[in-house]
Each structure stands twice: as C-alpha cells, then as structure tokens.
C-alpha cells in the first residue's frame, strides 16, 4: 500500500508539470504551427486545418502560402519587428538598471523584512495591468497630477508633454515588467555569500571593483533569467505602446493582431507568431548549447 503511494507520488511529481507543459504549452504551439500551414477561408473556423483527423483517417496537406506572403511583403513585417525588438531591448535594459539596485537592497536587507519587500514588489500584479496603465496616464497627462504639481510649484508654466513620448512608453513597460526582473535578480543576489564580498574588500578591492569583478559576474544567471522574462513578453507587447505611445509605434504584436482581427487571416497571424518564436527562441537555444559545449 505504502509502496503504491510512493510510486504514485513519484509519477505525480514527474507527470504533473510535464502534463501541464504538454497541455498549456506544447498543444497550443503545435496547434499554432498547424494553423500557420492552413488555408484561410470564410467559415467557422476561418481556415482549413492542414492536419486533420477525420473519417478518412489522418490527412496532412500543408500550405506554404502564409509564409510565402510574409516573405513577399517582408518589409511590412520587418519594421514592426525592429520596433518591437527595440522596445523590448530598451525595456529590458531599463528594467535591469532599476531592478538591480532594488534587488540588491532587498537581498541585503534584514531577513525578516525581505518577505515583506518581495510582496511589495509583487503587489502591482494584484491589480489589472490595464488599470495600472490608466493610472499612469492620469499621472502623465498634460492635465495630470505631475503637471499640476509642477505648475503649482512654479517649475513650469505650460504643461510638459509626457504622454505619447518614449518616456511614457518606457514608464509603462517598466511599471509592468519590473517585478519579473527583480525576482530572479533577487534570487541570485541573495545566494551571494557576504564573505565573498568581504574577501574581495579584504584583498584591496574598492566598491566599484567589487561590483565589477565579483557581484556582477556572479549575478549573471539572474540577469539572464530576468532579461528573458522581460524581453520575451515585451517583444509581443503592443497594448502599452498603443495606450501610452504616439503614432509611430507599430509593434509586431499589433501586426499579428491586425492579421488576426482585421484581415481575419488566422493562418498568416499564426505564421508570423511562429517566425517570431523562432527568432526569439533559437538564439537562446543556441546560447545554451554553446554554454554546454564550453563546460564540457
């Protein structure tokens, strides 16, 4: 009986996460690949699936048109892709710059308040992201709180245009993604032994030297994890730039949206998404592969 439970428990531990990944990651991905090779039509659903299980058994008749169309009009997709990658890159960079000192401070503060500080970091997640964006708009508007205060204090006479600028976009991005950067950074910094830092100081390293030669290299796993956590969703982000940005912000996420909703071309939307995933995932896989090579 006991043995049975032990065995059952082990199966559960292994298969639960695997099942989760299979159900919520693999199946949707496979379905998306399927749709990307399908032919669009006006019907319910609005495509003829490339891969079908029907009375005639399995049929697989992939259509390359969707990828060819993207290839043909590559310029229309390249610029939004560059916009998105630029947005994601700088959002990641700014998040890193803000998150690092915060994570450091939390990791080095009293153990008893660390949990409270971490909960405070996560707190914004408890409100809807849209609500937070509108709160930010309320702050940054020409008639918003910040301008009211600046005008009242006599620092400026006319309101400063903060909305529809890079400033407002990146404020929104940082507000949304900062916790995703802080948590892995915290996890890697809290593991950093104080005596290692003291050893460096003892050996003649000044503060900046300690950071450059000890803390920074040892927190690279946290930096990498946090950057991926921010960068990957940020590439697909288009709501924040649409709400806070000016007209120049056509993002790849929005292009997928228009393919899906405006052109009602689910297969092309799926194909773009697959290409995007490939562009993001392949370098990561390659980097990991390189890493493994180097270690062995």
């Amino acid at each position: 009986m006991n043995y049975f439970f032990q065995k059952f428990g082990r199966i559960l531990v292994i298969w639960l996460p695997l099942g989760w990944l299979l159900l919520f990651f693999m199946f949707p991905l496979v379905e998306m690949i399927n749709v990307s090779f399908s032919e669009a039509r006006r019907a319910v659903p609005p495509y003829i699936p490339a891969f079908q299980i029907g009375s005639g058994g399995f049929t697989f008749s992939p259509v390359l048109d969707n990828y060819l169309l993207i290839y043909e009009y590559w310029e229309d997709y390249l610029w939004p892709a560059i916009n998105s990658i630029r947005l994601a890159f700088f959002s990641t960079l700014y998040c890193l710059l803000f998150a690092y000192p915060m994570a450091w401070w939390i990791a080095r503060s009293n153990k008893s308040i660390q949990h409270i500080l971490l909960i405070l970091v996560l707190m914004p997640f408890w409100t809807s992201s849209l609500l937070r964006m509108y709160a930010l708009i309320g702050l940054l508007n020409p008639n918003g709180f910040i301008n009211d205060v600046l005008i009242w204090a006599g620092i400026t006479v006319t309101p400063i245009q903060m909305m529809q600028t890079d400033f407002s976009i990146y404020s929104g991005m940082i507000l949304t993604y900062l916790p995703l950067m802080i948590l892995p950074l915290y996890a890697s910094l809290v593991r950093l032994d104080v005596s290692i830092i003291e050893a460096a100081a003892d050996l003649g390293a000044k503060k900046w030297d300690i950071f450059r030669t000890i803390v920074l290299p040892l927190s690279i796993p946290g930096i990498v994890a946090g950057s991926l956590l921010v960068f990957i969703p940020a590439v697909g982000e288009f709501v924040i730039p649409a709400l806070l940005g000016g007209p120049e912000q056509l993002m790849l996420g929005k292009v997928i949206w228009t393919e899906f909703f405006r052109n009602r071309d689910w297969p092309v939307a799926a194909a773009i998404a697959i290409i995007l995933i490939a562009i993001i995932i392949l370098p990561i896989v390659y980097a990991r592969y390189q890493d493994r090579e180097r270690i062995s």
Binding site: P247, V255, T258, R262
Partner: peptide, 9 residues
C-alpha cells in the same frame, strides 16, 4: 490593412 499599417508605422 497594409495601407493602414504603413501609415501608422
């Protein structure tokens, strides 16, 4: 869509 996207981009 294409005309619109080019304009907005």
């Amino acid at each position: 869509t294409r005309v619109w996207n080019r304009f907005s981009a």
